[in-house]
Simulated scan of single mutants.
Amino acid sequence: MKVLDLKCAHEHRFEGWFASADEFESQLARKLVACPVCSATDVSRMPSAPRLNLSSARGDAPAPAQPPHAAPEAAALQARALQFMRELIEKTENVGERFAEEARRIHYNEAPARNIRGVTTPEDAHALLEEGIEVMQLPVPASLKEPLQ
Protein backbone atom coordinates (compact mmCIF):
# COMPACT_ATOMS: atom_id res chain seq x y z
CA MET A 1 0.00 0.00 0.00
CA LYS A 2 1.38 3.40 -1.02
CA VAL A 3 0.39 6.42 1.03
CA LEU A 4 1.08 9.60 -0.94
CA ASP A 5 0.99 13.25 0.03
CA LEU A 6 -1.01 15.08 -2.63
CA LYS A 7 -2.16 18.61 -3.38
CA CYS A 8 -4.61 20.10 -5.83
CA ALA A 9 -4.17 23.18 -8.02
CA HIS A 10 -5.79 25.24 -5.23
CA GLU A 11 -3.05 24.16 -2.77
CA HIS A 12 -5.37 21.92 -0.71
CA ARG A 13 -3.18 19.17 0.74
CA PHE A 14 -4.46 15.66 1.36
CA GLU A 15 -3.38 12.06 1.56
CA GLY A 16 -4.10 9.31 -0.95
CA TRP A 17 -3.79 5.54 -0.51
CA PHE A 18 -3.02 3.43 -3.57
CA ALA A 19 -2.11 -0.18 -4.23
CA SER A 20 1.04 0.95 -6.06
CA ALA A 21 2.69 3.94 -7.66
CA ASP A 22 1.49 2.64 -11.05
CA GLU A 23 -2.09 2.51 -9.75
CA PHE A 24 -1.80 6.14 -8.61
CA GLU A 25 -0.53 7.20 -12.05
CA SER A 26 -3.32 5.24 -13.75
CA GLN A 27 -6.04 6.81 -11.60
CA LEU A 28 -4.49 10.26 -12.02
CA ALA A 29 -4.47 9.91 -15.82
CA ARG A 30 -8.16 8.88 -15.78
CA LYS A 31 -9.04 11.91 -13.55
CA LEU A 32 -10.20 9.60 -10.73
CA VAL A 33 -8.07 11.31 -8.08
CA ALA A 34 -9.94 14.37 -6.78
CA CYS A 35 -9.36 16.84 -3.97
CA PRO A 36 -11.72 16.10 -1.06
CA VAL A 37 -12.14 19.84 -0.40
CA CYS A 38 -12.84 21.31 -3.85
CA SER A 39 -13.14 18.23 -6.11
CA ALA A 40 -10.39 19.49 -8.45
CA THR A 41 -8.82 16.67 -10.46
CA ASP A 42 -5.66 18.67 -11.23
CA VAL A 43 -3.69 16.84 -8.52
CA SER A 44 0.04 16.48 -8.04
CA ARG A 45 2.21 14.43 -5.77
CA MET A 46 4.05 16.25 -2.98
CA PRO A 47 7.63 15.36 -2.11
CA SER A 48 7.77 13.12 0.92
CA ALA A 49 10.48 11.25 2.72
CA PRO A 50 10.16 7.49 2.50
CA ARG A 51 9.95 5.64 5.76
CA LEU A 52 12.33 2.72 5.83
CA ASN A 53 11.91 0.53 8.85
CA LEU A 54 15.41 -0.92 9.04
CA SER A 55 15.74 -1.10 12.81
CA SER A 56 14.37 -4.66 12.93
CA ALA A 57 16.91 -5.79 10.34
CA ARG A 58 19.96 -4.35 12.11
CA GLY A 59 18.67 -4.32 15.63
CA ASP A 60 20.59 -1.17 16.59
CA ALA A 61 19.59 1.53 14.13
CA PRO A 62 16.64 3.68 15.19
CA ALA A 63 13.78 4.18 12.76
CA PRO A 64 14.03 7.48 10.87
CA ALA A 65 12.08 10.33 12.42
CA GLN A 66 8.87 11.19 10.65
CA PRO A 67 8.93 14.66 9.11
CA PRO A 68 6.55 17.15 10.72
CA HIS A 69 3.27 17.59 8.89
CA ALA A 70 3.77 20.21 6.20
CA ALA A 71 1.04 22.62 7.22
CA PRO A 72 -0.93 21.72 10.36
CA GLU A 73 -2.61 25.14 10.31
CA ALA A 74 -3.89 24.55 6.77
CA ALA A 75 -5.18 21.10 7.68
CA ALA A 76 -6.96 22.49 10.73
CA LEU A 77 -8.46 25.28 8.64
CA GLN A 78 -9.70 22.79 6.04
CA ALA A 79 -11.24 20.64 8.77
CA ARG A 80 -13.06 23.67 10.25
CA ALA A 81 -14.29 24.72 6.79
CA LEU A 82 -15.65 21.23 6.09
CA GLN A 83 -17.36 21.15 9.50
CA PHE A 84 -18.93 24.54 8.76
CA MET A 85 -20.18 23.30 5.39
CA ARG A 86 -21.67 20.15 6.95
CA GLU A 87 -23.55 22.25 9.51
CA LEU A 88 -24.73 24.62 6.79
CA ILE A 89 -26.09 21.71 4.76
CA GLU A 90 -27.83 20.24 7.82
CA LYS A 91 -29.49 23.55 8.76
CA THR A 92 -30.70 24.70 5.35
CA GLU A 93 -33.28 23.51 2.86
CA ASN A 94 -31.98 22.75 -0.62
CA VAL A 95 -34.33 24.40 -3.11
CA GLY A 96 -32.05 23.63 -6.05
CA GLU A 97 -32.62 25.57 -9.26
CA ARG A 98 -35.56 27.43 -7.68
CA PHE A 99 -33.23 29.43 -5.39
CA ALA A 100 -33.87 32.92 -6.83
CA GLU A 101 -37.63 32.35 -7.01
CA GLU A 102 -37.82 30.97 -3.46
CA ALA A 103 -35.59 33.73 -2.04
CA ARG A 104 -37.95 36.33 -3.50
CA ARG A 105 -41.01 34.52 -2.13
CA ILE A 106 -39.47 34.49 1.36
CA HIS A 107 -38.37 38.14 1.09
CA TYR A 108 -41.84 39.30 0.06
CA ASN A 109 -43.56 37.15 2.74
CA GLU A 110 -45.17 34.85 0.15
CA ALA A 111 -43.49 31.78 1.70
CA PRO A 112 -42.48 30.89 5.25
CA ALA A 113 -39.15 32.33 6.41
CA ARG A 114 -36.44 29.70 6.52
CA ASN A 115 -32.81 29.18 5.62
CA ILE A 116 -32.39 27.99 2.06
CA ARG A 117 -29.58 27.08 -0.31
CA GLY A 118 -29.57 26.30 -4.00
CA VAL A 119 -28.24 27.21 -7.40
CA THR A 120 -28.69 30.39 -9.39
CA THR A 121 -26.98 32.29 -12.15
CA PRO A 122 -24.63 35.19 -11.36
CA GLU A 123 -27.14 37.51 -13.07
CA ASP A 124 -30.01 36.32 -10.84
CA ALA A 125 -27.82 36.64 -7.74
CA HIS A 126 -26.98 40.22 -8.72
CA ALA A 127 -30.67 40.98 -9.31
CA LEU A 128 -31.53 39.61 -5.86
CA LEU A 129 -28.92 41.87 -4.27
CA GLU A 130 -30.32 44.89 -6.15
CA GLU A 131 -33.76 44.05 -4.71
CA GLY A 132 -32.29 44.10 -1.21
CA ILE A 133 -32.32 40.32 -0.82
CA GLU A 134 -29.09 39.21 0.83
CA VAL A 135 -27.45 36.23 -0.84
CA MET A 136 -24.02 34.71 -0.46
CA GLN A 137 -22.19 32.51 -2.93
CA LEU A 138 -20.75 29.50 -1.16
CA PRO A 139 -19.40 26.66 -3.28
CA VAL A 140 -20.07 23.29 -1.67
CA PRO A 141 -17.32 20.69 -2.17
CA ALA A 142 -18.54 17.68 -4.13
CA SER A 143 -17.41 15.42 -1.29
CA LEU A 144 -20.19 16.91 0.87
CA LYS A 145 -22.89 16.50 -1.77
CA GLU A 146 -22.77 12.74 -1.38
CA PRO A 147 -23.26 10.78 1.86
CA LEU A 148 -19.96 10.07 3.59
CA GLN A 149 -18.97 6.41 3.67
Rank of each mutant, 00 (worst) to 15 (best):
R98C: 04
F99E: 01
N115Y: 07
P112Q: 15
S20F: 14
M1G: 14
E87S: 09
A76R: 11
Q78E: 15
E15F: 08
M136P: 00
Q66N: 07
A34Y: 06
E131L: 07
C38D: 15
M136E: 12
S20H: 13
P50G: 04
A40T: 01
K7L: 13
P139V: 08
L28G: 03
D42H: 04
A75Y: 00
A75L: 00
I106D: 04
P47L: 11
E131M: 01
A9K: 15
V135D: 04
A63F: 01
A34M: 04
I116D: 03
L52H: 14
A76H: 11
R105S: 11
D60Q: 05
C8M: 10
R114N: 04
R58Q: 02
M1H: 13
R51K: 04
R80M: 12
D42M: 02
L138P: 04
S48E: 12
A125H: 06
E146Q: 11
R114G: 01
V43D: 00
A9R: 15
M85W: 10
A49H: 05
L54D: 01
A113L: 13
W17S: 12
N94Y: 14
I133H: 03
V95L: 07
L148I: 12
A61R: 09
E110H: 12
H12G: 02
A81Y: 12
M136Y: 12
Y108V: 10
P68Y: 00
A34K: 07
L52C: 13
R105W: 08
E25A: 11
E73I: 03
A9Q: 12
N115W: 06
E146V: 14
R114E: 03
E102V: 15
V3M: 08
H10R: 09
K31T: 09
V95T: 09
K7Q: 13
P50R: 06
E131H: 02
